[in-house]
Design a protein around this nucleic acid. Sequence first.
DNA 1: TCTGAAATCGTAATCAC
DNA 2: GTGATTACGATTTCAGA
Lengths: 160, 160
Amino acid sequence: MEGLDQIDTQILDLLQHDARVTTKELADKLGLTITPVSVRIKKLEEAGYIKRYVAILDRDKVGKALIAFTSVQLREHTQSALKAFEQKSVKIKEVMECYRLTGNFDFLLKIAIRDMREYNDFLMNKLSTLPNIGSVQTYFVLSEGKSETAYPLDINLSAR
Amino acid sequence: MEGLDQIDTQILDLLQHDARVTTKELADKLGLTITPVSVRIKKLEEAGYIKRYVAILDRDKVGKALIAFTSVQLREHTQSALKAFEQKSVKIKEVMECYRLTGNFDFLLKIAIRDMREYNDFLMNKLSTLPNIGSVQTYFVLSEGKSETAYPLDINLSAR
DNA sequence: TCTGAAATCGTAATCAC
DNA sequence: GTGATTACGATTTCAGA
């Protein structure tokens, strides 16, 4: 699959906001019939543009009321030390996201837990047991102004 | 709906990893038939445990190769200044996530862009036009070790 | 690459148990 | 909760433009 046209991009954008939209609805919005839309979706899936479909849960309702961003600096910055930290930290179930960053800390982790007690358990019994940890700083989320899984696609509106 | 039992929790966990799993597959995994599984999913949706279903796209393939975490400190910390920043920043399309944080910066933004040129445009023409900005620090993502939308649910495995 | 019809498959709703 | 039936809607396939 070589490149996306405007219709592909619009399909992706609609699906990344609502994956339950029916092919018929998509077809109507795009001014097409079901068949080509269905074919395009399948191609987008097979070519890997769509990685997967997931349900987004209500964080509070499933008991993960607390989100923390934990930044980590390692003591040693060899390639193997960086790799080792990454490989081990992502195995901790509370770690939803793990990024290696530029700037004055090495890793940023997003942690989902029930409460402060669970964060303490994460910090003391899980994160701190990893080798080579230098300094750790924690930032708790006070409020979530936006939390979007959809990427900001560039849709050329004149193309309709 | 008052509380989740082990079966509900397992349904949620399976759906937050793969929303395309069929009711039949869920039923088989849970040792039930389609009917009760179908009823439970509907209840979970109606009670708001499942907020929505989305497609997760391939970031590189859709041209958002660069992710930045941008931390912002405001000059003034009145309630109205904080609220105003949050309300305005979330309207910027490149801002996928916006959190108000404890600790030594006020907001953390996750920014998805094509490249450094687009980040510069975001910073110069969008973020910096918001009122009350004190200091801004940017951390670019060098590698994404884990990027999960699923919350770490506690599944009591002994319950099967 | 599209349209439109036909066949297939999954889901939702209903029922007796 | 099971298991069967039904009806509906979505998806896939295919002929044809």
